[in-house]
Design a protein around this nucleic acid. Structure first.
Length: 116
DNA sequence: AGCCTGACCTAGG
DNA sequence: TCCTAGGCCAGGC
């Protein structure tokens, strides 16, 4: 395992942000990407999520949706623990793979900076 | 080694 | 207001 790896750093940053997402809240790929890097790497965030399954740390990838609040990554979740089900467990209403009241439930990663 | 795709987003017409 | 195009990085073929 290479210690000096840019992608590893990027992935780690993504996990850090995602893990900070409060329960019952959701965030977007673009927001995460913007906090971490240029903001144009939103695609890589999803890729990092794909790799997050291999991580030992618990990464609430189900709290990450696209900018429309649509559960685009639902198909990538295990059948035992579907994305919508996990969100529903946290009190989030999902209708047709869409997060209801997404605007209110949206958690901006920039709040981390505000907290510091 | 080069081309295509992907859990996305923004901008321009 | 809807549709098209471009950009970013990494992985698979």
């Amino acid at each position: 395992m290479a210690l000096k790896n840019t992608k590893n750093d990027f992935y780690e940053s993504v996990y850090q942000v995602v893990m900070l997402v409060p329960k019952g809240r959701v965030t977007t790929y673009g927001a995460i990407a913007k906090v971490i890097g240029t903001g144009l790497t939103s695609r890589m965030v999803g890729w990092a999520m794909n790799a997050s399954h291999n991580q030992n740390a618990y990464v609430p990838a189900h709290r990450v949706v696209n900018r429309n609040g649509l559960l685009t990554g639902k198909h990538h979740f295990p059948i035992d623990n579907p994305m919508d089900k996990q969100l529903h467990e946290e009190g989030i209403i999902i209708v047709e793979d869409k997060v209801q009241d997404f605007k209110t439930l949206f958690w901006n990663p920039m709040n981390i900076m505000d907290t510091f």
